[in-house]
Design a binder for these strands. Structure first.
Lengths: 85, 85
DNA sequence: GGAGTTTACGAATGTCGTAACTATC
DNA sequence: GATAGTTACGACATTCGTAAACTCC
C-alpha cells in the first residue's frame, strides 16, 4: 500500500467514476483502475461496487475512506511542519 | 515521499545507524542510504547529522519523526480496521 | 586501517500509456 | 452503439544489490 494508491482511492471515492478521477489525477484510466484493483487485492476486500454508471463505495470502502483521509492529512501536516520552520 | 521512505526514516532514526537499520529492514545499506538522501532532498532539509559513528537526528529530523510515526500509526489503524471487519 | 556512509552501475521490479476487450444499458 | 471498467503488452522509471570509493577517527 502506497500513498499514491491512497490518493487514487480517495479520488475515485469522491468522483465515483474512474474516468473522471483519472482525469483529475492526470493519469490514464487503466493505470488508475489497476491501482485500485491492486489496493483491493492487498487489503483483501472490495472497496467499491462496480455499477453500470461507475463505482460506488462498498461498506468496507466507506470505512477505509475516513482512514485514508486521516493518513493524507497526517502527511500534509508533516510536510507543512517541515516547510514552515 | 512514500510510505517506504517514511518507514526507512523511522528505522534509521531509531537505530541512529544506517547499517543496523538496513539489517532490520532486510535491505542493503546503500539502498537505505539513498532513500534517506532522496527523502531529505524532497523535503529540502537535512533530517540527520552525519557523525563519525552514525546518524543523529537533526532538529528538523526530530520534528519530522513524530509526524512520521503518526503517519505510520494512521496506516496501521486503517489496515487494522479493514482486517477486523 | 576500521567503521560508517555514499556513489557507480547493471538487474529486477513496478508503473504508466496505448490499444484492444468485456459488459451493461 | 455509447459508456464505463478491465486486460494485454511494450516502454519508461524507480528501486534494489554488489562492488568500489570516500571520510573521519
Amino acid at each position: 500500500m502506497s500513498l499514491h494508491q491512497i490518493r487514487y482511492f480517495v479520488a475515485v471515492a469522491e468522483e465515483e467514476h474512474v474516468g473522471r478521477a483519472a482525469e483529475r489525477l492526470r493519469i490514464a484510466q487503466p493505470a488508475l483502475s489497476r491501482q485500485i484493483r491492486n489496493l483491493e487485492a492487498e487489503v483483501g476486500t472490495a472497496l467499491f461496487e462496480r455499477t453500470s454508471r461507475g463505482m460506488r463505495l462498498s461498506s468496507a470502502g466507506a470505512l477505509f475512506l475516513s482512514h485514508a483521509r486521516a493518513i493524507l492529512s497526517s502527511v500534509e501536516s508533516a510536510t507543512a511542519a517541515l516547510r514552515k520552520r
